[in-house]
Design a protein around this nucleic acid. Sequence first.
RNA 1: GAGGCUGUAGCUCAGUCGGUUAGAGCGCAAGUUUGUGGCACUUGAGGCCGUGGGUUCGAAACCCAUCAGCCUCCCCA
Length: 456
Amino acid sequence: MAKIQVGIPQGTRDFSTDIVRKRNYIFSTVRSVFELYGFQPLETPTMENIETLMGKYGEEGDKLIFKVLNNGLGDPKNLEKSKAAFENVLNGKNDKNLTERALRYDLTIPFARYVAMNHAQLTFPFKRYQIQPVWRADRPQKGRYREFYQCDADVVGSYSLLNEVELANIYAEVFSQLKIDVEIRINNRKILAGLAELCGGADKMMDITIAIDKLDKIGLEKVKEELATRGLQENQVARIEQYLSIEGSNEEKLQQLTELMGDNETAKKGIEEITYVLNYAAIAGNSKLVTDFTLARGLNYYTGTIFEVKAKNVQMGSIGGGGRYDDLTGLFGVPNLPGVGISFGVDRIYDVMEELKLFPEAVQTGTQVLFFNLGDAESRKAFELAQQLRGKGVRCELYHELAKFDKQFKYAEKKAIPFIVIIGSKELEEGTCVIKDLKKSEQFALKQNELQNFSF
RNA sequence: GAGGCUGUAGCUCAGUCGGUUAGAGCGCAAGUUUGUGGCACUUGAGGCCGUGGGUUCGAAACCCAUCAGCCUCCCCA
């Protein structure tokens, strides 16, 4: 028999049963906390109109959007149009006669599109969460896929800093439930803007943030070099170095920053905001927030608070991030709707939990009870009792055929089923059954009519 | 877009200088053992050596091409 070549597209994954269980554990934890804070679920289509997405993620981003080919291109009556369209695409232009749809690239732009389309009906501030896969035609590598899940919560239509506080608390709550020890780094783009004003002018802000964003990766000296090549004067670089070397507790850092920034109004506003968020979070008992003025985040649409979550005790990039942005829906013709949002990096959270062995054992238990199949009459009784137990919400199954003990035991073992129930000829006669706890390797007999009251 | 590494059994991998019948561990199946698993032992099944071409008396090994996967940079989650 010839082997048929099978596979899945590059950068995609099958999630086998145990992985799905663990991922669902993360999803349901995140979802329940989102709900706890008043966020509502939203889902948008896998495909968007191509013009909704194009131009929203920069030049690089456009290249990474998966485009969907139109149907009916080969139809004789479309042939001329299709050929012309293909010519256009080869010349780097987009053409609706070839492709008018694309796979969603993130959840933020579709959300913005949704809000723009429905703003008249929505109650503001609108708080939504969204957990769906997104697609990028990127080259896959470690922790990076062409299909991956995003897990976002955003508030639109409110300038209140209480939103930031709530989102920070959501981070703290989720990671506390997942038992991941984290540091929630917080900064404010206004502080970075203020720094830019003091060092070369507001138009240097992008250059400065790009350079200091790399601090972790390339170190202080290289950052200074990069700043110099980006046209900053020596004294300006020196000031940034001073800025980057701020250390201590949150209060100490803010104190040093205040002194360094003098009476720059923009920076003052940023410091005020970050102080507000820290104070309120403290009321909620959130002690995970750490000010980090070197935190910049690449996305240039952030305008206020920015967050990044880092797991402690493990070598891993950020497992969450977010921030405040102005005018989310302006691109779609609905101006003046500010927003703030956070995102969870599910794949990385999974890796961290796997590495630190943080998944509870119960997550991996599917079937709780296996009934042995020891003959016709015996299995009929087992079948009946299994049905009863299911009525009580106990997950159980009956071994699918008569087989040796050995085989049935091994099945239970492989599926990590913690309990087995044995009904053989003897038990059938006596109206009893034997329950065996495979973990403790203990067993005892029980009346059949008492089985449904047993707590598995 | 640029670069590096790897493709041999279901899985993880050995395979020497190019040499005759391609190996191991795990897993799978059967048995020792027809009502008590995990351990041990015995036996067995399972291979187009990624694909195509070339060099050679001879290729899993060398060369070229191609496909696939992994990884790094860019960028990002």
